[in-house]
């Protein structure tokens, strides 16, 4: 066989094998493909925030009772906590009523009767799994993948920013009384911090 034809055949074979061996995809496409398309995390989060939580709000522990228990009987206090794993980071669904002492762009600072640590109601950074896990109503076994469950966390945090906080921010003033149901993250390996950050779930200005 002519040398030129041989080289041409080899090159064609090489290109054919090469073309079928290498795939170039955008990272964003791969990421999207890993998220199961049937699961609607936003719908799940909406139902949770607007129906499941209000129907189970009596499960929240009073913030005053919790802070007192953390001092007197930490083991009992942590029996009210929830998390998806059995690590040191735990979440509590808490309720209470407080007076707004200060407002800044990140928080509303509340005075809550019977609560020694400062109470910060988060109004800017709604982060982490507190909103999802505080109530203990969401279980990993409900989901096909942990990614689905984690997306619920993200959607819940976005919903709180979009639906719970704007109304509160427009109505809240210094001296206003706020009734709240929210979620608090604590690390049981560490001492109770000087200030407790509450991720709001349900907020009402009671003397507006």
């Amino acid at each position: 066989m002519h040398k030129g034809v041989k080289y041409a055949l080899f090159t064609a074979a090489f290109l054919l094998v090469g073309y079928n061996s290498i795939y170039v995809k955008k990272l964003s496409e791969v990421k999207k493909a890993t998220e199961t398309s049937e699961f609607d995390a936003l719908a799940y989060a909406k139902k949770f925030l607007n129906k499941t939580l209000p129907a189970n709000k009596e499960k929240a522990i009073s913030l005053a009772e919790l802070t007192q228990l953390l001092k007197s009987n930490p083991r009992k206090a942590y029996s009210y906590s929830n998390a998806q794993n059995d690590g040191n980071i735990r979440y509590f669904m808490v309720k209470g009523e407080g007076e707004i002492l200060k407002l800044d762009e990140d928080n509303a600072y509340l005075q809550v009767a019977g609560v020694a640590p400062k109470v910060l109601l988060a109004t800017q950074y709604i982060l982490g799994n507190a909103a999802r896990d505080g109530s203990g109503l969401i279980s990993v076994d409900e989901f096909t993948t942990t990614m689905e469950m984690n997306t619920v966390s993200e959607e819940l945090n976005k919903l709180i920013k979009a639906e719970v906080l704007p109304r509160f921010k427009s109505d809240a003033k210094l001296g206003s009384k706020v009734s709240f149901i929210g979620s608090v993250q604590l690390n049981q390996a560490k001492a109770v911090p000087d200030s407790l950050e509450i991720i709001p779930l349900i907020l009402n200005i009671v003397n507006h």
Partner: peptide
């Protein structure tokens, strides 16, 4: 193609 990759990335970016 591993879920851990995206769980880590998503947790960080959240």
């Amino acid at each position: 193609s591993d879920n851990n990759t995206w769980n880590r990335s998503k947790g960080f970016h959240s």
